[in-house]
Amino acid sequence: MGLKAAPEDQALLLELQEFDTRLQQLAHRTRTLPEAAAVTALAQEGDALRRALAEQTGVWEDARTELGRVESDVAVVEARIERDRARLQATSSVKDVQALEQELAALARRRDELEEIELVVMEKVEEHETALAATRAALDGLDSRTAEAVAARDAVLGALEAERVHLTANRETVAGRVPAELLALYEKQRARYGVGASHLRGGVSSASGVALNATDLNTVRAAAPDDVILCPDSSAILVRTAESGL
């Protein structure tokens, strides 16, 4: 013998299904929030900026190291120039004077070369410092935008959670009025097929959106009001009301 339930108890399933549908929609909205996607996009942007900052810092440090080497080489050459000038002032040997003058000329050329290199490297350091400053500024701006986006996301999530709690409480109230066996069947069909109850309205099943054929309609008409029957298309419990067109 099939399950039986009073028509008014079966009608409660339509309320229950409405709550479950709204809860499903709410869960979908929570999973697909544009505000959450915005936070994720900003996080990805931040990751990219931090990677860029790390790379730029490495390049800048390399340029600073190169500048330090060039400055050290310039200092060595200038020290040798000062030493040779002092030796030149102190010697009276023509041979030594000629040798020192030649070395001083070579050192002067070397210093000029190094100073040109030093200028180029200094420009590189300044360029890298500018790039670093721009990336740091972008990160600072991103932090502010991220804080705003997180606040917006959390506000929406909070509202959705409050709505979920409200719907869940109302659902539990309705579920508590449904006979246990009928509720168990509803939950079973909903878990298996996605919909637990379908309203037969004007001969059309709300769950499937399909009109019952003549044979199925005759079967429904022949059923007692307290018979619990399933929709032939959606397998949800088919709830009959005054709107069913029977």
Rank of each mutant, 00 (worst) to 15 (best):
T168N: 03
A147M: 06
E78T: 11
F19P: 03
T40C: 00
P7W: 08
L167K: 10
A99E: 13
Q17E: 15
V174Q: 04
T91L: 03
L114M: 10
L16N: 05
R64I: 01
T146L: 05
A86V: 02
E101H: 08
A138L: 12
L185M: 12
P179Q: 02
E148N: 12
E187S: 07
E45F: 01
E15L: 11
I117E: 14
D143G: 10
A197P: 03
T146I: 00
L12R: 15
R64H: 02
E172T: 13
Q24I: 07
A133M: 05
T146D: 01
A86T: 08
A223Y: 05
N213Q: 10
L246G: 09
A5P: 09
E163W: 06
E82C: 01
A52Q: 10
N218Q: 15
A138P: 10
R109P: 00
G194W: 06
L100R: 13
L16Q: 09
E15Q: 15
R80A: 06
A184I: 05
G202C: 08
E55C: 00
A207S: 07
F19R: 05
E66V: 05
Q98E: 15
A134T: 02
G196P: 02
D233G: 00
D227E: 11
E61H: 00
T32L: 00
L167V: 01
A36G: 12
T219I: 10
L26F: 08
A159E: 15
V150Q: 15
A99W: 03
T219Y: 05
D20I: 01
K4H: 12
L42P: 06
H199F: 11
A43P: 00
Q44I: 04
L160P: 07
V210I: 15
G141N: 15
A169V: 15
Q44F: 03
E123L: 02
V204W: 14
E148Y: 03
A137W: 04
R109T: 14
E113S: 11
D73T: 08
Q17L: 06
I237S: 07
A108K: 12
